[in-house]
Amino acid sequence: MSEAPSPDPHLAPLPGELPLSSPGFAAVDRTVGGVCAALNVLGTLLILGLAVLVNVDVIGRAAFGAPVSGVPEIVSLSIVAIVFLQAAQAARAGRFIRSDALLRALARRAPRAAAWLDALWHAAALALIWIVAQASWPLFLKAWDRDEFVGAVGDFTAPVWPVKAVLLVGCGALMAQFALGLVRAVAAGLRRAP
């Protein structure tokens, strides 16, 4: 492959990914990006922490007869936190799975229709994450009020509320990310044909 790669049609930005030349929007985008990146770092540290924890448990058990209590419980809680800490950054990096063949075909023939369709999908994503978040809020309150925990008293216990809080924060970041996409797609839909 000596020649420069030709522009790949399936790499062209979708309407929800089109750049938007508004300073206000750029500032919001940067802020959301910063939040997503910060959550991402926390999630990454949590994965690293799990890797260390399981190894300490294995070595402690095999070499010293001293396993770490509560590893299964910690792992079960952490995976939920990891997912919601990283979800917004994953969405930002275009890792949310979608089949874009129809959108791209439409974008070639009727770009504004494609933009409005993509706007609809971003609005749907926004609405559903909102539903999950607002229905999860009472679950968080319950976990907080009742001191819900996992594990067994006397061996190991861990409170559940931090993970429920992370879930809410993660939903918030996801909503912000989908809102940015919605604005981009709507702007593309309003744009006059070149």
């Binding site: 058990r61 007869g65 396993p67 209590s69 419980e73 594990g151 067994a152 006397g154 061996d155």
Partner: peptide, 10 residues
């Protein structure tokens, strides 16, 4: 090393 359900570890 004895495996046990959570509460029985105690």
């Amino acid at each position: 090393k004895i495996g046990a359900p959570g509460p029985a570890v105690n």
